[in-house]
Amino acid sequence: MKRFRNICLIAWLAAILVLVFYAAPATAAPPKQKNIILSTTTSTQDSGLLDVLIPIFEKKTGYFVKTIAVGSGQAMAMGQKGEADVLLVHSPAAEKKFVAENYGINRRIIMHNDFVIVGPPSDPAGIKGMKSAAEVFKKIAASNAIFMSRGDNSGTNAKEKAIWKAAEITPEGQKWYQQTGLGMGLTLAVAAEKKSYTLADRGTYLALKKNLGLDILSEGDGILLNIYHVVEVNPAKWPKVNAAGAKAFADFMISKQTQKIIKTFGVDKFGSPLFFPDAGKKEELLGK
């Protein structure tokens, strides 16, 4: 009897495990060519914008979007290898290079918001209210207050480097310059813990503000503009790229309906929009 019960138990267990195993592939593998790999920055995902837009796109077109949220630098590296179909990124200088080297096509403007320089309310470097970002960075460097950098080649990191360049300072290797190598949210958390300064996109900062204890100390300089573009990966370079899907997604991002959603996104939660739609505008004229 005991033996029989044991065999029953083993059979029962095996049946459950087999069921579990065969259920897994059933959810996998949506139809071919339907998959679009969207490589994007963390800010579009962390702000929740893509959670709103992508279901609409999928319903409308029948495509299935695989959103891979990484820094802009890594997103473009994936595009360069043909491992993504379409990019939504915010690192204009690198994007231009990406397109010039024929890795990407049809770079189109989607929206913008801006970066802000945040720091502890005590403001040890005394930058509060200063307008010029380069001057702010100079003052932080001179005061030896800690500056927390993303250090991950993201769009934010690229912008930060551009400001250091404008300030004519080489921060790498300095004692007060620390690199987290983390996303924006976690970098803000580290900056808050260490009572240091950092550069953040306004959307992520607003979303995390209540837990941080960091204040916006400088904002509004033209250099702090944060512009998002959509770039399709060049199918001539990588034949496996889903070119039709990439184009459909890019077209969807600049469509009137999407731009309208972007315009009002976040108003209910933060009292002000997180992004400003810009489809069709000239990049050079923004913020003027």
Partner: peptide, 16 residues
């Protein structure tokens, strides 16, 4: 990876 040795399986970014 798509352009890797098992790219033809199109399996990256799936539960499998």
């Amino acid at each position: 990876w798509r352009n890797g040795p098992f790219g033809f399986l199109e399996m990256l970014y799936t539960p499998t």
